[in-house]
Simulated scan of single mutants.
Amino acid sequence: MAGTQCAAAASPDGCLNNTHGAERAEVIAVAAKFPPEVIGVAAKFPLEEASVEVKFAILPIAGRMPGHMNVLLAEAGVPYEQIFDLEEINEEFSQADVALVIGANDVVHPVARTDKTSPICGMQILNADKAQNVIVIKRGKGAGYSGIENALFFEENCRLCCGSAQGAVAEMIGRIKALS
């Protein structure tokens, strides 16, 4: 891990500090009980108005059953053309200015690629850590189902915004609109 404590825990407003001028954003929406209203708010992120490409990345096995996240995103009004599975989007993270991770933990844990002794070694993950800036919104920096702390939270390019996803996303949208 890059440090001994979370690289930068910040308010929703503070999480956006390094993202001004972003041209490409990947939104990762992964959680078993992801509230549709949060996805709806994220889907309305005003980035496209500023010519920023927005894509939703999902792990096909995430949620309560395969395809669950596709259904939640569709119910929230996310256009199908903006939803991408792991195989379709993983290589694109290295070109993304911002990866917004909402409610995910193990599925964005870079140790799955690098540590052969890890219980999640070899697990499919979304390569969010490869984006220029990573914003993680979750209730806390606790361990995921694997029981291990997420190394992503210690990377210099990561900002952790702890709290309600719906509130954090709404606050970020307000900040983005104020900048426009």
Score class of each variant (00 low, 15 high):
Gly3Cys: 11
Cys6Thr: 15
Pro12His: 05
Cys15Gly: 12
Leu16Met: 13
Asn17Val: 13
Glu23Trp: 14
Ile28Pro: 03
Ile28Tyr: 02
Val30Ala: 04
Ala31Asn: 07
Phe34Glu: 01
Gly40Gln: 08
Ala43Asn: 13
Leu47Ser: 07
Leu47Gln: 01
Val52Trp: 10
Lys55Glu: 04
Ala57Leu: 07
Ile58Ser: 00
Leu59Ala: 12
Asn70Arg: 08
Leu72Phe: 06
Glu75Tyr: 12
Ala76Met: 03
Val78Glu: 00
Ile83Tyr: 00
Phe84Ala: 01
Glu88Phe: 03
Ile89Tyr: 01
Glu91His: 10
Glu91Asp: 15
Gln95Ile: 11
Ala96Ile: 07
Ala96Gln: 10
Ala99Ile: 15
Val101Cys: 08
Val101Glu: 00
Ala104Tyr: 00
Val107Phe: 12
Val108Trp: 13
His109Phe: 14
Ala112Lys: 11
Ile120Cys: 05
Gln124Ala: 06
Ile125Phe: 08
Ala131Arg: 09
Gln132Val: 14
Val134Gly: 15
Val134Tyr: 12
Ile137Asp: 03
Arg139His: 05
Gly142Pro: 09
Ala143Gly: 02
Gly144Leu: 04
Gly144Glu: 09
Tyr145Arg: 14
Cys161Asp: 04
Gly163Arg: 06
Gly163Leu: 01
Ser164Leu: 02
Ala168Ser: 14
Glu171Lys: 14
Ser180Asp: 07
